[in-house]
Simulated scan of single mutants.
Amino acid sequence: MSYTGPGFEPPHPRRSRLRRPLTVAVAALVPGALLGWVVYEAVGGSGGAAVSSSAVRTPAETASRAASSPAAPSPSDDRKVPNPEASATAPASGPLSGKVVVIDPGHNPGNFQHTAEINRTVDIGTGRKECDTTGTSTNDGYIEARFTLDVSRRLRELLQAQGATVELTQDEDRAFGPCIDERARIGNAAKADAVVSVHADGSGAGNRGFHVILPAAVSQGAADTRDIVAPSRELGERIAGSFVRVTGSAPSDYVGNGTGLVTRDDLGGLNLSTVPKVFIECGNMRDSKDAALLTSGAWRQKAAQGISEGIVSFLRG
């Protein structure tokens, strides 16, 4: 079908080289140890303010902050971003000023250590489902949760540059989760104009391509998606179209009949949403050719760009 549709380390302040010569000179000219000491302190104190060791990170420290979880090493170009509450900045002015976008990085790198918590079930309207899962990984151990965080952080930068207010459902700032029902509530509470849940698939080897998952019309229990089905489809179509154009990836050859669009009623993150929302499976981690793309920082930037352009197109109408 037709779719519509981004190492500088600041120098450490130098201690004044004049401290010792001036101290010696003063001590020689002014008799008395006490007076010499006083002058030493006065001269030494003007050498510049000290810099906290936490204010400047070495390259090694910066790299260590981007390290993957022990169970799943990730490529070195994953973007590590501090707690969003500590790094939040006012959105830039731009075409998306006043718009709110929630990005939902699928899974959480910490889920591996909290299987009991993520295995408990929650109500998704059409039934009950696990709070969350660990996600999939490439054959070489690059986990989906690392992939989704990296793409989501890149996507946040791009959307903020357009003026949008952007919120992530998690930014590795919690031990596990959140559960799928809470992920939906975060978007609802933000009154988001668009929500995108970022994933990568774990299908069989040989299956390739991306697909966007749309909410089905559900009205059962706590779920009622009837008002968001149409705008969510438009959001999904625009993302799919821009994803093809920017990444060069083809729509999935194993689901969606070549359209890159799939409708489902069994995902709590969609069923419980009251705002336009879609999932995107950016590729199949279990296929070696797709995995080569997913583990490339350059390609992940393209993926973020493709998703971003689709969101911008949707929000601008």
Rank of each mutant, 00 (worst) to 15 (best):
P11T: 02
P13D: 12
R14N: 03
S16K: 05
L18Y: 14
R19S: 05
A25V: 05
A27Q: 05
A27F: 08
G32F: 04
L34F: 15
L35D: 01
W37A: 10
V38S: 06
V39W: 08
G44E: 11
S46Q: 15
S46H: 13
G47D: 15
A50N: 10
S52T: 00
S54Q: 09
S54R: 11
A55K: 14
A55S: 15
T58G: 11
A60L: 13
S64Q: 09
R65S: 07
A66N: 01
S69T: 03
P70S: 12
A71D: 15
A72C: 14
P73V: 04
D78W: 12
R79L: 14
P82Y: 04
E85M: 05
T89E: 14
P91D: 09
S93K: 08
G94C: 01
P95F: 01
V101F: 11
V102E: 09
D104M: 01
G106S: 10
H107V: 03
G110C: 12
N111T: 10
E117S: 13
E117L: 03
D123M: 06
G127T: 02
K129M: 06
E130H: 06
C131Q: 08
D132P: 01
D132H: 00
D132K: 02
T133I: 02
G135Q: 07
T136D: 15
N139L: 06
D140P: 00
G141H: 09
L149Y: 05
L149N: 04
V151A: 15
S152T: 01
R153S: 05
L155N: 11
R156M: 03
